[in-house]
């Protein structure tokens, strides 16, 4: 089993290396365009261009260029933006990570708990009005665009009903670091968490219900019934345990993507300076070093999340361990 883990992480490192090479090739070695001009941004002066060329070693062989870039990204961390003069890119990205992580982890906790509840309750009461209304709500949750929901939330909690007893506790938009102001951190994030998680609660609840109902048709559930187990025990111990596998797969993919910047719309709506927001701004300014860094960061996160999912698989499903 340990060997399987080591192999899996070795594979992960290999994929990450592949991604870094690919990103490097796309940004630096695309034929027909001068990478220096793109890095320097629009209307750059000849001096800036020259500085970019020197700094990235464009006069040197390709592998040296790759090495220089990786060194700037991971070792010296002095990759600079030329659009925003002198702005150090790597620390800027690192600064945004806690914001995105806070948002996504909090939302993930909500959607896992409520997703499980919705799925279990709906599957246990299959065909009843409880099941039907939960599924209808889930579908609505899936269907609401997150930016629209966010704006509605803001409208309610920040302006319309802000002065009522219900929402007077909601602080103004923005982010408060957890280490400096834990209470403020929590309060500012409650509404974004709910907004972001609603989509996923609907999705996960529906997927889990379908998986549970499928699992309940399996032969081993009949065996469990023949053993004289209670329906609750059959559902939680036998059906849920085997259904969790696809739940975890989905979670890994979504979590990785969100941390990698897919929470962009939520971040923009709630004025959170996260990875998504940073990428969005960089795209608008065509700030190549920032884009490059966030792309690498995001893809690393997706790869890491997938590797973690596989580890959880190994824990959940003994068949993966030996097969």
């Amino acid at each position: 089993m340990l060997l399987a883990l080591i192999r899996r992480f070795g594979q992960m490192i290999f994929v990450m290396f592949g991604i870094s090479v690919l990103v490097f090739l796309i940004f630096f070695v695309t034929p027909g365009a001068d990478p220096a001009a793109r890095i320097a941004g629009r209307n750059a002066s000849p001096e800036t261009l020259e500085a970019v060329r020197k700094s990235f070693g464009f006069d040197q062989p390709v592998w040296v260029q790759y090495y220089t870039l990786m060194k700037k990204l991971f070792v010296t961390q002095d990759l600079t933006s030329f659009v925003n003069r002198g702005w150090k890119v790597v620390p800027a990205v690192i600064d945004t990570i806690p914001v995105t992580l806070s948002l996504v982890i909090g939302a993930a906790v909500l959607w896992v708990i409520f997703g499980l509840l919705v799925g279990l309750i709906a599957a246990a009461t299959r065909g009843s009005w409880i099941d039907k209304s939960l599924m209808a709500l889930g579908l609505i949750g899936c269907a609401m665009p997150v930016y629209w929901l966010g704006e509605v939330m803001n409208l309610i909690t920040q302006s319309r009903y802000h002065d009522s007893w219900m929402f007077s506790w909601v602080p103004p938009l923005g982010y408060k670091p957890l280490t400096e102001d834990p209470k403020g951190w929590f309060l500012t994030l409650v509404i974004p968490w709910i907004t972001l998680s609603i989509l996923y609660i609907g999705l996960y609840g529906r997927v889990l219900r379908a998986n549970l109902i499928e699992a309940m048709q399996e032969d081993y559930i009949r065996t469990a019934r023949a053993k004289g187990l209670s329906e609750t025990r059959i559902m939680l111990r036998h059906a849920l345990r085997t259904s969790l596998i696809s739940f975890v797969t989905l979670f890994g993919l979504d979590f990785g993507a969100l941390v990698g910047g897919a929470a962009l719309l939520t971040e923009v709506v709630f004025g959170l300076q996260g990875v998504g927001k940073l990428t969005y701004d960089a795209l608008q300014n065509l700030d190549l070093p920032v884009i490059m860094t966030t792309v690498i960061y995001a893809s690393f996160f997706v790869v890491l999340a997938n590797a973690l999912v596989d580890v959880v698989y190994i824990l959940l499903d003994p068949r993966v361990r030996s097969a």
Binding site: Y220, T223, A224, L229, S230
Partner: peptide, 22 residues
């Protein structure tokens, strides 16, 4: 439920799928 498994037990056709895999 109290009878099942204690007074009357049943074994099924396909041993491949009769036990919970995890």
């Amino acid at each position: 439920r109290k009878l099942r498994g204690r007074e009357i037990a049943m074994i099924f056709q396909d041993p491949m799928t009769a036990m919970t895999p995890v």
